[in-house]
Simulated scan of single mutants.
Amino acid sequence: MKKTLPAYLGISFVWFSAHFGGGFASGRQIVAFFLNHQWTSLFMPAFSMLIMGLTFYFSMVIAAKFNTYDYSTWSKKVYGNLAPVMAPVFEIMFNALLVLVTAVAFATGGSTLAKAFGTPYMLNTVVLAAVIFVLTIYGADLVRKSATVVSLILIACIFIIYVPNIIYFFPKIIHNFAAVKSGEIVTGTQNSFLDTIWWAAKYGALQCCAIGAYIVHAQACPDKASLKKAAIVGFFINTVVMYLSYFGILAFVDQGVLKEAVPSLFVVMNGVGGAWMTVLISLCIVIGAVSTGVALVYGTTNRLANFFGRNMSEEERAAKRKIHCISSSAMLVIACWMVAQLGLIPLIGKGYGNIGWVSLLLLTVPILLRGLGLWRFAEDVPGKVAAE
């Protein structure tokens, strides 16, 4: 990894690949959390990613400081004296998110493949499950490497899809924004500025739900300087890509794009590029689904592998680590695949907002308070992060 790219870049790309799932690639999340609200939503993607970036950084620092790289032991350090109650609640929330989001990834990817190639939905989800399983059983290093490759492909595709449309339709984007601001074009709910902030905060907190999938990678560069670089680069990449999607969809806000199930597909079908971009966005959605599944499943695989080896000696744990990882990944992938067969996409999509505010209260706020030094415990003695 160090021979090609710095480890902190790999961690940044893990964040991006987990964020860029089927829901984001379709444009549906940008519409639901931002464009469906008043014109001040223009500033909110950066605000959401700032929340996520700070939470990301402080979470990594806590993991490195206490050498806790699975989310169970890590959550005990976050909640301190409240851990007996709060740590189990966090685990329930994280695993619920894992199953729901990965199931959505299977379902979205399966549906996209069915439309693009006419292959059976169930077969498509089996193929996606197999790919995710293979990528999650070979350890954190492969996950970071695959995340880097996938992220670079996705970033390139997003630039190819949205930049030409933004340039070509730039006057129209300016006009549409002015029309939204004046009220000439009504975009979903036209509530207060505080409501727009609330939805942006929920989006940032929703992404924080997946923090358990990131902390395992902090051991690749456990010094604060590297972790800070990972957070800054991750913030920049995610924010830029969110704005490309935001402005690309805004160009068609006067044509009913906000009501489309897959807004990004509407953009490429009615904008610059035509048929070949339709194939490209379909590919993005499928790759995004896989990347999200890999990041989330591996985060829990690490936790389960540690759980299975909890009563073993260090030598026994090391010897059986591979078996524990394989069995853990298999269990998780099968569970998510089964949920995907229930066709819960609308239900899961509506639940994202609720997961967001629950995560904001139970996870994001405590981590920010810990990171900013506003909530301390006896064990928080002055000291350095490992290898600082």
Rank of each mutant, 00 (worst) to 15 (best):
S111I: 15
T112F: 06
M331E: 04
A87I: 09
P346R: 02
N176K: 00
S359Y: 03
P346E: 07
F56K: 07
V385L: 10
L100S: 13
I211G: 06
C284N: 11
L361K: 01
R144M: 15
E379G: 13
M52Q: 07
L35T: 05
A25H: 09
A335G: 15
L368D: 09
L369Y: 04
F266L: 01
M277N: 09
K145P: 03
V31K: 00
N354D: 08
F20L: 14
G204I: 11
Y79D: 04
F90M: 06
P45A: 07
P171C: 10
P164M: 15
A201M: 02
A231P: 02
G234Y: 02
T239Y: 05
M269G: 14
V101S: 08
W198Q: 05
A147C: 08
R310E: 01
V385W: 08
G204A: 10
A230N: 03
A63D: 02
A96P: 08
R144Q: 15
Y246V: 06
I30R: 00
S75L: 09
C208S: 07
D223C: 14
G22T: 12
G309P: 00
V279I: 12
G271A: 06
P366N: 02
K229A: 02
F170E: 04
A386T: 13
A107S: 01
K145A: 15
